[in-house]
Amino acid sequence: MIEEIFASGHSFIHKIDPRCRLVAATLLCFVIALGQKMPVLWAGLGLSVILVLWARLNLVHVFRRLLVIWGFLLFLWIILPFTYDGDVVRQIGKLGATRQGIGLCTVISIKSNAILLMFIALIATMDFSTLGYALNFFKIPEKLVQLLLLTYRYIFVIEQEYRRLVRAVKLRGFRPGTNMHTYRTYAYLCGMLFVRASARAQRVYNAMKCRGFSGRFICLHEFALSPADKIWTLAALTVTVCLIFMEITL
């Protein structure tokens, strides 16, 4: 099932104005992604852990999300130290692990974990439509915002349709395996999904027109900044500036 598991919560982070969170997350993610100095990266990781804890998220879910990137990181750790040029620090058979390679892997691991946690704490804690409205506020082209909100609206409907198709093939005794029949079945299933989606799209568009859709979405969501929002944003900006300062001076 497609679910927004982090979006519903009542922590302080959840209550902060989405626009502030969006700005803070973007700035902090970029500072961490572009940072070179180890103290900055460790500080970034620490900060994102604090934010995740502050958002009082279900840590098991957070851990599961981290596992996905750890798979990729493991792949890097297996290849990179042995193929990177530099001083060999440990010899395993014919392969030598280099200090520079291990260093690079460490940097990448810290960065990706820190950015992912930051993203979970600040962005995944708002539901997607709120994100759409926040983007609308930042003057993202209107067509893109419409496309975004409508796509979001329909993934759940289409997913239902997908489940119905899967149920239908299962009832007919379908068992996936590595064979042509499986690939053909899945391809037809996708094709059917597109056919149904397109028929639904026509109905949706007709219904929208009947209700006077003029090609413009009017945003009914009103944002208001509370004093707490302002203080939090100011703090987040200060931390960002501190990280940049550390990066330059250290």
Binding site: Q146, L147, L150, Y152, R153, Y154, I155, I158, A201, G215
Partner: peptide, 11 residues
């Protein structure tokens, strides 16, 4: 075409 594109992207 926006609604159509959106539903197809969802698919």
């Amino acid at each position: 075409k926006i609604p159509r594109t959106a539903v197809l992207s969802a698919a």
